Amino acid sequence: MDISVVVPLFNEEESLPELTAWIDRVAREHKLSYEVWLVDDGSSDGSWRVVQELAAKNDRLKGIKFQRNYGKSPALYEGFKHATGDVVITMDADLQDSPDEIPELHRMIVEDGFDMVSGWKQKRHDPLGKTLPSKFFNAVTRKVSGIELHDFNCGLKSYRLNVVKSIEVYGDMHRHMPLLAKWAGFKNIGEKVVEHRARKYGYSKFGLSRLVTGFLDLLSLMFVGKYGQRPMHLFGTLGTLMFVVGLTSVLWIGGGKLYALANNLPKELVTQNPWFYIALTCMTLGTILFVTGFLAELVARSSPDRNQYLVEKVLTNDRVGSLRSEV
């Protein structure tokens, strides 16, 4: 199969018929065999009913329905898990991403040899409240990651199949897919200017809070990528430095006390010296960082159920059965 299109969706019942018809038309015109995975992220409208109706008419359309809203990254994770096409393309369900970009995104992977191609919404149809924070976020991410892309958060991207099978997207890490690919060893990352269309139905499901969570995820990802296999290099260094500061303070206070005793100088209680409490705090924090900080990170990363989600239904349209439930 040439392409798998993964479409996360949340309350997008109006746009789905037009989107899937558009994808089908583009794929047929360019003679691309395809499948579309529509991942319903716990919609409260009639989105799943529309997915079922569309899949009944076109066996290339497949669906996944979450029992509740998990977020875009889990939706992508489940879509990637089921994708089988040589090239995997992600796009939003709100019709702001144009399916007309699919053939060129496919060609850049197959012919130009890119591992991943990220879309760049050079001209955006969004208010300043979204575009300005996005520009700032992209500039910081570009500087921190060393990946020269203009738009990390664009939902329209294409991947070689082994890329999506090799990376693990969770939390809100969908904003950092290029960095995830880079850490997995896929460094041939390209960029393509794509059309960004004005929203036709509904409203945006993302608020300004994604700016804060995006930076937190970036910090987390940079830490995991750099220190995930050697956390002692970070926590051990910080813990040792703080412990040394505390120990040095204790020795200094103790030395001062002995000097006063030896020379019959006025004596003050050790507890009257503020450095005593600073020393205790530094030694305690150093011990905590050294012993428990990196262990907690390792436990979290090795948790077997971090990417287990309650999938209510999987619509496959195969001969064995059109629906199956996963829990």
Score class of each variant (00 low, 15 high):
K226R: 11
M242L: 15
G63M: 03
R324T: 12
I64H: 01
K135L: 06
M108R: 13
M232W: 10
E111Y: 01
N307R: 08
L180S: 08
T281E: 15
G171N: 04
D112W: 00
N188H: 14
D172M: 07
N153S: 14
K200F: 06
Q67I: 01
M116L: 15
V327T: 06
M283R: 01
D2H: 11
N264Q: 09
F10W: 10
E12K: 05
V224M: 08
S73A: 13
D94A: 06
P178D: 12
V169K: 05
V244D: 03
V88S: 02
G79E: 11
F152S: 05
H106D: 04
V36F: 00
A262E: 11
F137T: 14
W252T: 15
H82F: 13
R230Q: 15
A296I: 10
W37T: 11
G225I: 01
D172E: 13
P103M: 04
L216K: 13
K62H: 13
H82V: 09
E101G: 01
V164A: 04
D126N: 13
S73L: 00
Q122D: 12
R210F: 02
N263V: 03
E101K: 05
G202A: 06
G46A: 12
V314N: 07
G246T: 03
D59N: 12
S158K: 09
W37Y: 14
E29M: 04
L310Q: 11
H82Y: 09
T131H: 01
K157F: 01
Q122P: 06
S166R: 00
T84C: 05
A181Q: 07
R25I: 00
Q272H: 08
W37G: 11
A260W: 03
T84M: 10
D305T: 13
F276V: 14
L241K: 03
P178K: 04
G228V: 03
A56L: 10
K121V: 02
H176C: 08
P304V: 04
K31L: 07
L161W: 07
F294S: 13
G190I: 03
A300C: 11
W275M: 14
M108L: 15
Y277R: 03
T20L: 11
F223T: 08
V144P: 02
T240Q: 05
N307F: 00
L265S: 09
S33K: 08
L179M: 11
E195A: 14
Y170I: 14
N188S: 13
D151S: 05
S158H: 06
D217E: 15
Y277N: 11
Y70G: 08
V6C: 08
K62G: 07
S158R: 02
G185P: 06
L315M: 10
K165M: 06
T287E: 06
R68N: 03
L9F: 02
K130C: 09
K57G: 12
E14N: 08
D318M: 00
Y34D: 08
V87L: 06
R124K: 12
N162L: 05
E29R: 07
Y203A: 15
G321M: 04
E53Q: 13
M116G: 09
V314I: 14
V299N: 03
T90L: 02
I147H: 00
F186D: 08
D45H: 01
F137W: 10
V26S: 03
